[in-house]
């Protein structure tokens, strides 16, 4: 596992890299989160505010921390911040690594043969 110090000196892509530069710069060229898997429907919640003294975070990290005071799915964070999902995953990995967020993975198995589950969902849909 890489330490937080290591990812601070990753190289930046230059601006000729085209329209993808922004997302990559935000993640300092990283593709995979240093921690965590982050399914699209994993739920993220902020567990502590980021102190002023914290270094190495960009505005997008802080935006996520702000956004997730209310529990939000990974897909929704990406949509609200208008960032590619892959980028959001990397940022979330940083935040998880330093203990600013908690992750609730989706139930490993929503029991797809549970009749009661379907009935409850159908009931809910009919009364929407």
């Amino acid at each position: 596992m890489r330490s937080s110090e290591e990812f601070d000196d990753e190289r930046w892509l230059d601006e000729h890299a085209g329209p993808l530069v922004r997302p990559y710069v935000m993640t300092r060229g990283r593709i995979l989160p240093i921690r965590g898997k982050f399914d699209l429907i994993s739920l993220i919640v902020t567990v502590r505010p980021v102190p002023m003294s914290e270094v190495g975070f960009g505005p997008e990290h802080l935006a996520i921390v702000d956004l997730c005071h209310e529990m939000l799915s990974v897909a929704e964070i990406a949509g609200r911040l208008d960032l590619p999902v892959g980028t959001v995953r990397v940022l979330l990995g940083d935040l998880l690594h330093r203990g600013f967020i908690a992750v609730e993975e989706p139930q490993p198995e929503v029991n797809m043969s549970d009749e009661a589950m379907y009935e409850a969902v159908l009931d809910g849909l009919r009364t929407l």
Partner: peptide
């Protein structure tokens, strides 16, 4: 409704290596 985006290469796979992205 929100829009989210995923980045793809022409190989049809998610980008897995940033070198040479350009």
């Amino acid at each position: 409704p929100l829009r989210t985006e995923e980045i793809l290469t022409d190989q049809g796979v998610a980008v897995d290596d940033v070198s040479g992205v350009e």
